[in-house]
Nucleic acid binder design. Structure first.
Lengths: 161, 161
DNA sequence: GCTTTCTTACTCGGATACCTACTGTCCGAGTGGAATAGG
DNA sequence: CCTATTCCACTCGGACAGTAGGTATCCGAGTAAGAAAGC
């Protein structure tokens, strides 16, 4: 079990779009070239993010993708949920506690949610809370801090296209 | 992306084994019947837990599985790691930051770990920490609290086999 | 009655198919811009 | 010179294969219990 590889692509792509700020839309072809990714497949992830309202798409010449809102308002969790399709659910309870040994037990015993599921759910919420605490703007800033000039370098890179 | 269904089976099975305490080994056939699961496939999960040192297996007549150590010392995280095979890794960084746009950037800029990977890693650690904070004994206790008599019921259920 | 041996049935363990979902690719619909022709 | 029209190249969008990992199953190797025979 592993997150889709598209999640990594989606986050990095959002960071690039954040660096480019208010520029004209960037075609998926260029965004893919920026990380040497298969363009057709990256488009699939961009479409998912468009449906989730993270990016907006423009068709026709000079078209492409841009961020739908300021990068400060885009959490990493949003990207994960968008690409994983709906609310990412690590654990799904199938209520096996009611089967077999639990078959002849009064239904009132199952009124409380399954403890196993609750434990997994709590952990999942901790995971989601952590991802919700970092925005695309945070990432763009920390990368710029670790490698000064990244923003300008990215802007130049896309200009020469 | 979802955790393997075997994780749910493994945790519930450990809870049952905790209820039975120090009994003779329980064959996988009976453990599967306890939750109406396919026996052959549950055996696969039990083998994984045996390799991880969570349960011990005994072959031959009157053989089966039992907990390898007290349920207070078995965290839910241990079961997850065992069944997912090795250390469960939700996110795997492929270092795409070095490709394309990052191709002609001095290597010193990549000395610090990738910020995206670090964010995902932090969230993953929060998830693992939460799972590490609950033991099989905790679960067995909370289920008994929600449905008093579960422990004794389980013991009787396995005795009539 | 006790010990030893043999049989036997029962258990795990790894090797083997199947199926879903992620990965990767392609071609068509739609659109905005630019060139062109007419006023 | 300005405007309206036509054409065209460029973009997204959804539909279509390939593949890896999770799901499910089976049969064989090993073992410990129990019966039986010998002492």
């Amino acid at each position: 079990m592993r997150l889709s590889e598209g999640v990594e692509w989606g986050v990095h792509t959002c960071v690039v779009l954040a660096w480019l700020d208010d520029r004209a839309p960037i075609p998926s072809q260029h965004l893919a070239a920026a990380h040497e990714l298969p363009a057709a497949y990256l488009t699939k992830q961009l479409q998912a993010m468009a449906r989730a309202g993270i990016v907006t798409s423009t068709t026709g010449p000079r078209g492409g993708f841009r961020l739908a809102r300021p990068p400060e308002e885009i959490a990493v969790l949003d990207v994960v949920d968008a690409i994983e399709g709906g609310r990412a659910e690590l654990f799904h309870c199938t209520e096996i506690r009611r089967c077999g040994i639990g078959g002849d037990v009064p239904a009132s015993c199952f009124k409380a949610p399954c403890s196993v599921a609750a434990t997994m759910h709590d952990a999942e919420e901790a995971w989601r809370a952590s991802l919700a605490g970092t925005t695309v703007a945070d990432l763009a800033g920390s990368i710029e801090a670790a490698a000064p000039g990244s923003t300008e370098h990215a802007q130049n890179w896309f200009t020469n296209r």
